[in-house]
């Protein structure tokens, strides 16, 4: 078991003929992901190392039965590409693209509500169920199958978490990067709720950062609904207010969105907070000892 992606996932890649899209598609395929199709308007009928390319997502779904999409389309056209996959009824859409305007994402987010699709990202590393399916730009080789679910707003910080628990001999059920943008498709609560329901997942790590109030809301959710042990980390204790720290969503506005506020909320909810990044692996080992 795992959440959202596994051996049955059939992937279509939007923007497969671009340099990045092609590179990461081949990495996903090499990892074992069943990549069934690519989409680039105007390039239908071609193929990328044997993967058939279609002009539209609807056509790709009809011909191949794709049930997940990975989006590498450049920012000006990316919201359109996501909407296309929603319209094609794709159940899981993973948008890697960084730099989509917020106004575009507001429309996508509101349109998602009445649809059958789940969007992960944008501006995220993707999702991986170790040993089964990788959709995204993560280094597959650092992951091992196991009992810990990880959800994170950051890319390389997620790899750090995977690496640290990996050195303690702890594997992962599913690892999800939800992305660093202010408006995203899947939030902490969606992932926590799925991890709570997944029998393979015995414990959870959530990695947050400054900006917004998603971590505070997630902490509240954990207190009320999650019985599995959770450890948390927040990046940005030293970040100055009012400055965008790389990610469009990582900004302290006034007194809201601070690392201190988030840590306090997590501690109050019974989450074991890792205050020093270097100790994440060790703390996970101790905190999860009873369940794994």
């Amino acid at each position: 078991m795992s959440i959202w992606v596994d051996n049955n996932t059939k992937l279509v890649v939007q923007g497969i003929t671009g340099k990045e899209g092609q590179f990461h598609t081949m990495n996903c395929k090499a990892y074992g992901t069943n990549v069934v199709a690519g989409v680039t308007p105007g390039k239908g009928g071609q193929n990328v190392e044997g993967i058939p390319v279609f002009n539209t997502v609807a056509k790709a779904v009809k011909e191949t039965g794709a049930n997940a999409a990975m989006v590498f389309v450049p920012p000006p056209f990316c919201a359109d590409a996501i909407l296309e996959s929603i319209e094609a009824g794709i159940p899981l859409i993973v948008a890697i693209t960084e730099g989509i305007p917020v106004m575009d994402m507001l429309k996508v987010k509101n349109y998602l509500k009445g649809s059958k699709s789940r969007l992960i990202g944008p501006n995220c590393p993707g999702i991986i169920t170790p040993g089964q399916c990788k959709i995204g730009i993560q280094p597959g080789n650092i992951h091992t199958p196991g009992p810990v679910g990880i959800v994170s707003r950051s890319g390389t910080l997620t790899y750090e978490a995977v690496h640290q628990i990996g050195t303690m001999g702890i594997g992962q059920s599913t690892v999800i990067g939800i992305g660093g943008d202010p408006v995203n498709g899947t939030n902490f609560i969606d992932c926590l709720s799925a991890f709570q329901a997944d029998p393979q997942t015995k414990a959870i790590i959530m990695v947050g950062e400054i900006g917004g109030s998603a971590e505070e809301e997630a902490a509240d959710f954990v207190q009320k609904n999650v019985t599995k042990p959770v450890i948390g980390f927040i990046a940005g204790l030293t970040a100055p207010p009012g400055r965008r720290m790389g990610h469009a969503g990582a900004i302290i506005s006034g007194s809201s969105g601070t690392a201190q506020g988030k840590i306090k909320a997590m501690q109050a909810a019974g989450i074991t907070v890792v205050e020093n990044l270097g100790e994440m692996g060790k703390i996970a080992k101790v905190a999860f000892a009873k369940v794994i």
Binding site: S154, G155, L157, E275
Partner: peptide, 23 residues
Amino acid sequence: NGAGLAMATMDIIQQAGGAPANF
């Protein structure tokens, strides 16, 4: 490399008794 890890690196520098000069 990466915004989240960059912030966390600034934090850990400070926790080790240093003072980060930048992000």
